[in-house]
Simulated scan of single mutants.
Amino acid sequence: MAAADPEHVAWLTERKLARAWPTCWNATANANGVRSDFRVSHSTWGGSTWHTYHLADVARVAGAIADGTAALQPHWRNDTPEAKLLDQHLRRKNLPGAIGCALVIAVALAIVVTIVVLSWNDSSSSYSPPSYWH
């Protein structure tokens, strides 16, 4: 029978895991059996969810990475030629979407500016000075 995890087990956030394994973290954690959990925080503006990773598993896999026994593919790392090629490919693939998003924002901004300018000009042309007739 497996022992249950105690309540005081430390969990690492994605940011801390990325600092612990700067060249590879997300796919490596998944491939090497690092236990993960979603944490939820509720606030006035809604809920936030984030991944956390089991500290003992992170330490175990860090040792396996140092020993060279961890499941680690070249394209998972961010310091290999394969990863740089994949990153360039993804940037080229996402470029049309980024350009389209920028155009939509520019058009929306132009429409808002036009409406504001037109409404400002209309309100200034219908201005009449106050009458002091008694």
Rank of each mutant, 00 (worst) to 15 (best):
Q73V: 04
D57P: 03
I111T: 08
I105F: 08
P130H: 02
L90M: 15
N30E: 08
P129C: 07
H89F: 11
L72W: 05
Y53A: 00
G46Q: 02
W120V: 15
K84E: 15
H51Q: 13
G100Y: 06
K84I: 13
S119Q: 13
V113Y: 02
A18M: 10
A31S: 08
E7D: 13
N26H: 14
P74G: 02
T28F: 04
A31N: 06
F38K: 08
P74T: 07
T114C: 11
E82K: 07
D57Y: 00
V116I: 10
A59M: 09
T13M: 08
A98F: 07
Q73L: 14
W50H: 13
A62R: 09
R92H: 15
N121E: 09
H134Y: 02
H8T: 10
D79S: 10
L90F: 12
R39S: 06
P129T: 02
A18S: 08
G46I: 06
T13L: 15
S124E: 06
D37V: 14
Q73S: 02
D5F: 10
P129Q: 11
R35F: 11
R91N: 12
A18Y: 07
G46K: 01
R91T: 14
P22D: 06
N32I: 03
W45M: 01
R15C: 03
A10T: 12
S36N: 14
I111W: 05
H54M: 06
N32M: 05
A31G: 00
